[in-house]
Design a protein around this nucleic acid. Structure first.
Lengths: 207, 207
DNA sequence: CCAATATATACACTTAATGCGACTTTGCAG
DNA sequence: CTGCAAAGTCGCATTAAGTGTATATATTGG
């Protein structure tokens, strides 16, 4: 299966070269200040070739995320035999969020910073979340064939939405890994037990 | 308050002219096939002027949504005195979702169709959702000053996320208003009572 | 080595978006 | 009413993203 010919390997190398050249230049000079021509030159290909690897300049920022996301999609299929659906959902969403939000590799920090400060990149990141959410709906209906369609959609939307928000908040406020983990656990608890389980919401107003 | 001088009124007229010209042309010829020059010509302004009203071609699609959203943000402040925070959240999120997702006016259907079929527009719509979610967090912490920061973030994220997904699903599958309302009610129930309240999730696997 | 196919490149082109200086309109104070 | 400052419009030039196309080059399988 993994017997990629020379052709495939070369493609992958070029892709990597483009991605890391791009991230490096973005870090050095800034995003707007780096042109496709610069990236292509740094990766030793023609500018035109850039677009046969990435549909746009913005997409190159997500090269690594997209790779990870593709892997996660594969591994999403098989589930541990004795999980309850609730546990499966939790595991699936956590895997996805980790793949999207965890910066890895040499340029992880650069990616995160870029996405936080460029609204258009933020929009594209949200789109990836959204697309992956559909994947969650599919897995969920596959897992519990008798589940109502609307229920599946809502469960996925609320869970992914809650996780997205908490992770983003933690990143934006510089939480350390321990605090982040604690926040994620809290988020899962709220989503699973409902807004009604949060005392501050049901208590009469304090004014 | 609403004593706009001639200048302001003229600006608003031009803005409207640009927006409706754009939407009309998008409907007639398609999005890509319509240039800024076309839009400007149809609105009788110079192409350069377009960009002093909208920062990009994509933003003109959201002209109406943004107006509504601005209104909603205003009215979000005052709350009925005897609401519980839970009820406030529900009301606030419903208002926002309605403002974003309910297509109104002559070109509502066009907007929705464009957003559904253009990934980049979808991304921008999601960004608007996301930005507005931050507003919800602010209102919520204002409403219950003693609430934990993380809790507020999770509650907003999960609620907005759930609503977004259910509304999108309904639109994509052509639900009529009655069915949509029913689905939204169901979504709110799940978010408020928790994933644990969905029988299909806690039942042992059916295989 | 050959033929089929996939990929890289050079070139031309469209158009979104921005900066700038000149010009026009509006608001307002005297 | 008049003139001045501010705001807005416009034309022009420029940059850079992204696409189509034809040509050249490299890879694969036979």
């Amino acid at each position: 299966m993994n017997h990629m010919g020379l052709r495939e390997r070369k493609k992958q190398r070029t892709r990597r070269a483009l991605a890391s050249a791009a991230l490096r230049l973005f870090a050095e000079r800034g995003y707007e200040e780096t042109t496709i021509a610069d990236i292509a030159a740094a990766a030793d290909v023609s500018p035109r070739t850039f677009f046969s690897y990435f549909p746009s300049k913005e997409d190159v920022v997500f090269a690594e995320v997209d790779e990870r996301l593709a892997e996660v999609r594969e591994s999403l299929g098989q589930r541990s035999p004795d999980e309850t659906p609730l546990e499966s959902i939790r595991r699936i969403v956590l895997e996805i969020i980790e793949a999207i939000a965890t910066a890895a590799g040499e340029y992880g920090a650069v990616q995160v910073q870029l996405i936080f400060e460029r609204p258009s990149l933020q929009a594209r990141a949200l789109k990836r979340m959204n697309d992956t959410e559909q994947e969650v709906v599919d897995r969920l209906t596959e897992l519990c064939p008798e589940i109502d369609e609307i229920d599946a959609v809502v469960i996925s939307g609320a869970t992914v939405g809650g996780m997205k928000s908490v992770i983003t908040h933690c990143r934006a406020h510089g939480y350390d890994p321990a605090a982040t983990r604690k926040a994620v656990d809290r988020a899962l608890a709220i989503v699973e037990r409902g807004l009604g389980s949060v005392p501050a919401l049901t208590r009469p107003v304090s004014s």
